[in-house]
C-alpha cells in the first residue's frame, strides 16, 4: 500500500483546519479507507478533542521521534471506526521538538499501512507549517469568504507552489453563509475562487451543529441530517476520485422559509 499524504493548512487560524481534518478523516474512514491523522500543532493540540480521543492518548508524535515508543504504539484508534487512527501532538512541547526530516520519515512509514495520511497543520507560515508540509504531496487550503482568511490563503498558496513535493493543492471554502452572499454582504464562492485562482474541492456551509459536534467530540459527518456533514462527506468522496456535484446551499433556506410560511399560515387561521 502506498498512501496519499495530504496536508490541511490555511495560514490564518480559526478558519476550521482541525474541524476539516477531523471530518474528512472520519468520512474517508467511513468510506472504508484506512486513515491516519497527524496533529502537528505541537503545544496547541486540538484534533484529539474534536475526535473525542483526548483521554486515550498515551504517546505523542514527540515520543515517537525521541524513541520512547514505536510508531504503532502511538497511534490511537478511533472509538467507532477501526479504520481511523490519530497520532497526537505533544501538548507540553513547542514546534522545534520535531523536524521536517522526522515528519517526512513518519509519513513514509505510515504510507505503507494507510490509504490516507492527513496532516493537520498549525496556523502561521513559520517552522510549524514547514514541518507539516514536509512529508505531504497534496494540500487542502482551508479558507473562509473573509478578506483576512483569503489573503492568508493566497500567501499559503504561494508557499505551496514553491514546494516541489506538493504536486497539487485544492481550496476548501468553509463557513459559507448563503444568505449573506445573496444580499451581497459577503464574497461569493465564485469571487474567492476567482481571486485565488485555485481549484475548489469543497464548499462547507456555516453550521451551528459544528459547535455541538465539537463539544461532544463527535465529527459532524456522523450526523446524516447535517448539511455541513454532507458537504464534508462530499469532499471525502471527491478526494477518493468520485465526481460529486457541489451542494446547492440555498435549498435549506427554502425549506426554512416553507416551514415559516407553514407556521405563519397556521397562526393566520387561528385568528
Amino acid at each position: 500500500m502506498s498512501g496519499r499524504v495530504i496536508v490541511i493548512t490555511s495560514g490564518k487560524g480559526g478558519v476550521g483546519k482541525t474541524t476539516t481534518n477531523a471530518n474528512i478523516g472520519t468520512a474517508l474512514a467511513r468510506a472504508g479507507k484506512k486513515v491516519v491523522m497527524i496533529d502537528t500543532d505541537l503545544g496547541l493540540r486540538n484534533l484529539d478533542l474534536l475526535l473525542g480521543l483526548e483521554n486515550r492518548i498515551v504517546y505523542t508524535i514527540v515520543d515517537v521521534v525521541e524513541e520512547r515508543c514505536k510508531l504503532k504504539q502511538a497511534l490511537v484508534k478511533d472509538k467507532k471506526n477501526p479504520n481511523l487512527c490519530l497520532l497526537a501532538a505533544a501538548q507540553t512541547r513547542d514546534k522545534t521538538a520535531v523536524t521536517e526530516e522526522q515528519l517526512k520519515d513518519i509519513c513514509e512509514k505510515l504510507k505503507k499501512d494507510f490509504d490516507f495520511i492527513l496532516v493537520d497543520c498549525p496556523a502561521g507560515i513559520e517552522q510549524g507549517f514547514q514541518n507539516a508540509v514536509a512529508g505531504a504531496s497534496e494540500a487542502i487550503v482551508v479558507t473562509t469568504p473573509e478578506m483576512s482568511a483569503v489573503r492568508d490563503a493566497d500567501r499559503i498558496i504561494g508557499l505551496l507552489e514553491a514546494k516541489e513535493e506538493i504536486k497539487s493543492y485544492k481550496l476548501l471554502l468553509n463557513r459559507v453563509r448563503p444568505n449573506l452572499i445573496k444580499s451581497n454582504d459577503m464574497m461569493s464562492v465564485d469571487d474567492v475562487v476567482e481571486i485565488l485562482s485555485a481549484e475548489l474541492i469543497g464548499i462547507i456551509p456555516e453550521d451551528t451543529g459544528i459547535i455541538t459536534s465539537t463539544n461532544k467530540g463527535e465529527p459532524i459527518v456522523n450526523d446524516e441530517k447535517s448539511l455541513a456533514g454532507k458537504a464534508y462527506n462530499n469532499v471525502a468522496r471527491r478526494i477518493i476520485g468520485e465526481d460529486v456535484p457541489f451542494l446547492n446551499l440555498e435549498e435549506p433556506q427554502g425549506v426554512m422559509a416553507k416551514i415559516k410560511k407553514f407556521f405563519s399560515g397556521l397562526t393566520g387561521k387561528e385568528k
Binding site: M147, D154, M186
Partner: peptide, 19 residues
C-alpha cells in the same frame, strides 16, 4: 458598492501588492 464588492476590490489590490 456592496460590502462584497468592496471586499473583492480591496482584496485584489492588497493581493497584487503581496504578490
Amino acid at each position: 458598492e456592496s460590502a462584497k464588492e468592496t471586499a473583492c476590490n480591496r482584496l485584489r489590490v492588497v493581493l497584487m501588492q503581496d504578490r
